[in-house]
Amino acid sequence: MFRFKQFTIRQERAAMKVCTDACVLGAWADVGAGGQLLDIGTGTGLLALMAAQRNQTALIDAVEIDGDAFGQAVDNVADSPFASRVRVYQTSIQAFAQNSAQAQQYDRILTNPPFYTNQLRSPDAVVNRALHTGDLPFEALVLAVQQLLKPGGQWWVLLPSYEMGLLTALAQSIGLQPFRQLDLRHHAQKPVFRRVTGFSQREGTCETHELNIYETDGRTYTDAFRNLLRDYYLIF
């Protein structure tokens, strides 16, 4: 269980637990004001609930293919103050995008996708689905976003740097350009281990930022990290 200031994430049935980089995505991405939001691969419902806290009038759809994670997300949403504005669907994003009864176009899309391709797989099939791209290759993800993102909308993604490069090339092939980027490091002397990128149809240079989670002692949170997560983490 992970308690935030305004909601709680229970995660015993989900393969992917709450992690720092996902919280950074949820706190740093531009979730707009009002409108329609979509969380692709919601897992426990973390990003959907973080977005609901920040955007107090948005209607949010969250899609999750795994049955256990879907049930966990449904329960977490139901127990939150945002239950009336968040709907969770058990389906693949490919099927969701093709289902005219469910699919619509969204002002903002958030995605923390699986990214392992050829690495050694876990014997746990549920963990494989959460971590590996087999059920959601980047090409299929980009196609779904192309169908679901409103003109002028934004798509926010969390990935390691190399995989973000692959995804960026695919996004650009359908006219989505990176316009804002955050490089995430454990501390200033460590390499970038995750990258948050915002994509839109607008042309121009990509605004780049960097965030260190810790000071160089590896234990003390930086002021920038504290300020970013202050509205969520109980310890801040």
Results as ranks from 00 to 15, higher is better:
203 E>Y: 10
148 L>C: 06
135 D>S: 13
141 L>C: 05
136 L>I: 06
171 A>C: 14
169 A>P: 00
33 A>T: 13
129 R>E: 08
234 L>C: 13
31 V>Y: 01
147 Q>K: 10
120 L>R: 13
140 A>V: 01
220 T>H: 01
138 F>T: 00
193 F>E: 06
142 V>L: 12
62 A>K: 14
27 A>G: 11
169 A>Q: 07
66 D>H: 08
199 F>D: 02
81 P>F: 15
149 L>P: 00
178 P>L: 11
120 L>D: 00
158 L>Q: 05
147 Q>E: 14
44 T>L: 09
59 L>S: 06
92 S>L: 13
160 P>W: 15
199 F>Q: 03
208 T>L: 13
7 F>R: 03
79 D>G: 01
97 A>R: 00
172 Q>C: 11
58 A>F: 12
222 T>Y: 05
8 T>A: 08
206 C>I: 04
51 A>C: 11
166 L>C: 03
219 R>F: 12
48 A>F: 08
203 E>T: 14
138 F>Q: 03
117 T>S: 04
50 M>L: 09
22 A>V: 04
105 Q>K: 13
53 Q>R: 15
190 K>S: 09
42 T>M: 08
187 H>M: 07
173 S>V: 01
71 G>Y: 04
80 S>A: 07
95 A>Y: 05
227 N>F: 07
134 G>I: 04
22 A>C: 08
153 G>Y: 11
37 L>K: 14
150 K>E: 09
56 Q>T: 15
71 G>V: 01
126 V>T: 10
182 L>Q: 07
5 K>Y: 07
18 V>M: 09
185 R>V: 06
171 A>T: 01
60 I>S: 03
232 Y>K: 07
60 I>E: 00
39 D>T: 12
40 I>H: 02
141 L>M: 12
61 D>P: 03
117 T>Q: 10
163 E>D: 10
181 Q>I: 01
29 A>N: 10
7 F>H: 05
200 S>C: 13
87 R>F: 05
205 T>K: 07
14 A>W: 02
66 D>M: 13
124 D>N: 10
183 D>A: 06
